[in-house]
């Protein structure tokens, strides 16, 4: 997620897990170091870093903010909005996706409506939200919800349609009814696809909750960031951006880990992309034997390792 997959694949074997962590921390540190150098030297080539706050400026601003109450209010406000909107989107998106995929009537009734609303960017619904809802708070949740709803709905619909019919027929001939098929076949079978949609959805939700807060919020990380910009407090803007980055990373990791936990039954090779034995330039010609060994070793250790490295 944070780094291109092929690179991670190539370094996987020579480095133990500690080494990979170190590499990740080092990459982050290098980026920060570059930032510090460019801004403290006021480099002004084509890109202008003279007005840019330095890493230490931002760190000081961050420390100030964290010790104040407003920062935490902003944080909890933004989190409440995104969690509410996202959970609503998850529940209604899955329900809608299953309904449209399983019922021809639902497909005819809802399909055209959904297809027309889907291309509208959620953030373009701000005027609608302002008209519809009594307060900004609900409007922001509505926009967050809309952002995540469509990715969840579409991927649920696709994965429900792609289910093997044999599973359903087997449950039918065991005497299972409609609800049994829904609970024992459709939902668990579509789960890998549903989590694909949830992962996309949580990302889009962040973009929209921050944008909506910038436009119409009171409190919230997006609102604070925009406020800092209007009063030319650039370190404050960066504090906001770092906060958004960390929160987004935490929430999408949560979704990702939950998804892995719930879809542990999937045959391994089709799931974790990093686990693919990619032919590596440095290793393959010189040492063909270890590569063969690697494909045979139990994949459980790799899975355990990967979960901590998302």
């Amino acid at each position: 997620m944070s780094r291109p997959a092929p690179r991670a694949g190539r370094y996987r074997r020579p480095l133990p897990p500690i080494g990979r962590y170190a590499l990740r921390v080092a990459a982050l540190a290098a980026a920060l170091g570059l930032w510090q150098v460019l801004t403290s030297l006021d480099v002004d080539l084509w890109l202008r870093f003279s007005q840019f706050p330095t890493v230490t400026d931002v760190a000081h601003a961050f420390a100030d903010r964290v010790s104040g109450a407003d920062y935490w209010t902003d944080l909890t406000d933004s989190l409440t909005r995104i969690v509410t909107g996202f959970l609503l989107a998850a529940v209604l998106g899955v329900a809608g996706g299953v309904l449209v995929a399983r019922s021809r009537l639902a497909e005819d009734l809802l399909g055209p409506l959904l297809e027309v609303v889907r291309p509208i960017p959620a953030i373009a619904l701000v005027p609608v939200a302002i008209l519809l809802f009594p307060s900004n708070e609900e409007g922001i949740v509505f926009i967050t919800f809309t952002a995540a709803f469509f990715p969840v709905l579409v991927s649920t619909r696709h994965s429900v349609r792609a289910l093997t019919p044999v599973w359903e027929e087997a449950v039918l001939t065991m005497g299972g009814g409609r609800w049994r098929i829904l609970g024992s076949v459709v939902l668990p079978g579509a789960l890998p696809g549903i989590f694909g949609g949830l992962s996309v959805g949580i990302g889009v939700s962040w973009i929209c909750v921050i944008s909506a807060e910038m436009i119409s919020g009171q409190y919230g990380v997006g609102y604070r960031t925009w406020q800092d910009y209007t009063i030319v407090n650039y370190p404050g803007v960066f504090v906001g951006m770092v906060t958004i980055g960390v929160l987004g990373w935490l929430t999408s990791t949560t979704v990702e880990l939950l998804g892995r936990r719930l879809t542990r039954w999937l045959p391994r090779t089709s799931y974790v992309p990093g686990a693919r034995p990619t032919p590596s330039r440095t290793l393959a010609p010189a040492r063909p034997a270890p590569a063969a060994v690697r494909t045979e070793q139990p994949s459980g250790t790799e899975e355990a390792r990967d979960e901590h490295l998302v």
Partner: peptide, 9 residues
């Protein structure tokens, strides 16, 4: 069934 009718999860 001939095959793969067990629920894989």
């Amino acid at each position: 069934f001939q095959e793969d009718a067990l629920l894989p999860w």
